[in-house]
Design a binder for these strands. Sequence first.
DNA 1: CGCAAAGATGCGGGGCACGCAATTTTCTCG
DNA 2: CGAGAAAATTGCGTGCCCCGCATCTTTGCG
Lengths: 207, 207
Amino acid sequence: MLVGVGLRESKKAATRTALSWAAIQLTVERGLDNVKVEDIAAAAGVSPRTFNNYFGSKAEAIVSRQLDRLRHIADELRRRPPEEPLWTALTQATLTQYQPGPEVVANPIPDPVQWAAGLRVMLAEPALQAELLRTTVIAEEDLAAAVAARTGTSIENDFYPHLVAATVLTATRAATTHYLRTESGSEMEQLLPEALARIAAGLPEPH
Amino acid sequence: MLVGVGLRESKKAATRTALSWAAIQLTVERGLDNVKVEDIAAAAGVSPRTFNNYFGSKAEAIVSRQLDRLRHIADELRRRPPEEPLWTALTQATLTQYQPGPEVVANPIPDPVQWAAGLRVMLAEPALQAELLRTTVIAEEDLAAAVAARTGTSIENDFYPHLVAATVLTATRAATTHYLRTESGSEMEQLLPEALARIAAGLPEPH
DNA sequence: CGCAAAGATGCGGGGCACGCAATTTTCTCG
DNA sequence: CGAGAAAATTGCGTGCCCCGCATCTTTGCG
């Protein structure tokens, strides 16, 4: 049996997604400490004990979708034509992350304004911030490997690929934060290329 | 009464330091989940309940010294002469972090090799990684403010100071990781300037 | 010296993470 | 198809953590 196509695999994936999605939704609605693991499990139609078979903590469940998305960046980078300049490829690869996936389209948000407000509250939770940062470090490994492959550097001995990966992911985080801080004068599709362009230019002082 | 010089203040600071130090030491020795809050409190000569008056979690206690050190970077940056180029000042400011403070000199490590090994195990703990990353984000605010002051940009409206602060702190983290990953061919005093120089040059591919 | 403010402590509760063993579901192969 | 193997789900019990509240002790100040 090929991996990923059996009934088992698809059910597991579905449960995992349901748990993560339920965790996010409930947290955005009520706030993190008004959501018990019991609630999340119930919303996903599964026993409380099963929740911890999939995730080690509430925070991990909430953050898992973000981790999945960050992991795609490395894949996208590998997919870019090799003759493309590195920073062009990196910019394009990171931008793919902001195209809404099918699962978001399928689940339309009832009240976008209220949702955005809840999201901010959620992201202000220290425990979630910490876990969220950890996802970028995990994805960093993948991205560093892809950068190493593209630039002919070594993932084990060279500092370069790690530094580039860390910097790129930091730039996306900084762009996101800026986007949330200011009441969005500009969109991510504009902010992120700007950030990466600045970095590729060596972050010179403005004007 | 001036802040910070009363008996009360100094006792509080001492207790805080003792708790954090005990938490680190015990964790390096035995591993995170073989250390109970009770143990840390006992080692610091204080009741278990008091521990949580100072820190919200074990992780926070362990990480608090690192946070203190990162906070100094912004102060150091402000102390650099204003005519100094930005990236020179940033490099110097971050380097001060690696001069061992008086409390480390006073408490000599019995077995440096074993200590280093324990440190690695400790830093591999997911919960600690997460909390450690959070400290950099907290320090990032301070640093961004200092960068804004030096470059005449706005902490509220401009993206630039945040991007610079985030990138610099990420570089120090990447350098630390590289230092721990490779069995230290080079020291931090060499690695960190290299990282910042690469960034100031726009991270070009190494020929 | 005595009162007010602030910190330390003890107690108790809610909840989370996880090990273990039993049970149900899915897969594989004769 | 059907039986046994493999894997996932579940229930139960445990240890610990974090925090609120009330009380007691220490420090600060006039």
